[in-house]
Amino acid sequence: MEKVQFETFDGPLDLLLSLLSKNEINIYDIPIAKITDQYMNYLYQADELNIELASEFIVVAAQLIEIKTRMMLPKEEPEEEQTDPREELVRRLNEYRVFKQISEYIKRGESTYQELVEKDPEYFPQLAEESSPVDINTQMLLNAIRSVFARTRIKPEEEFDYTIMREEVSVEDMIESISRRLEMENTISFFSLFEEHSGKYYIIAAFLAILEMVKDGTVLLSQETPYADIIIERA
């Protein structure tokens, strides 16, 4: 048996245009019987090969048969008033043919487009988190604690070992101590809580203590500018 190269089409109009061009037929004078036969032949072929065609192919087949039938009917009216049964089909084929040409044009543009390289937008995490004055992010906290370490001449990078030490000063003790100072002074500077020899754990305890006190609502914190000293006052 001869091997058949089965051509696929993008739709019934695509198939019709192909049949017309194979037969070198003028689109305005379609020999409808001949084309209908060839069209139907394609559908039978697809059926034999178990190729499922879109239902639209059948719709157009029906239209072709209808046109063929109408053309076989005797013409009763004068020639002028007679509309060609093929007219609608011709109009659609013409329009589709133009869009196929436009497709070719767009396809040519596509080959250039595929060779354009663009880069991903830069990602700026620090900008994404850019804060309003009330927002405090981890970076600001880190900067604040770094400035405290800087004041006390502790270099966290050098001194930090990963052993967990027993707290030298508990957070509770620190809260107690800050509360006592606030009974005598209206405001306390955060930096004043430490001295040059204050240990890292002491600083961390103080830091946690004021956070705890803010949470409890016993103190208010204010800061002129980021990284500046934090003023602690009674709420």
């Binding site: 019934p12 639209e56 589709y96």
Partner: peptide, 9 residues
């Protein structure tokens, strides 16, 4: 409209 012009879904 697109489907009418293309004759297919």
């Amino acid at each position: 409209d697109i489907e009418y012009i293309r004759g297919v879904q």
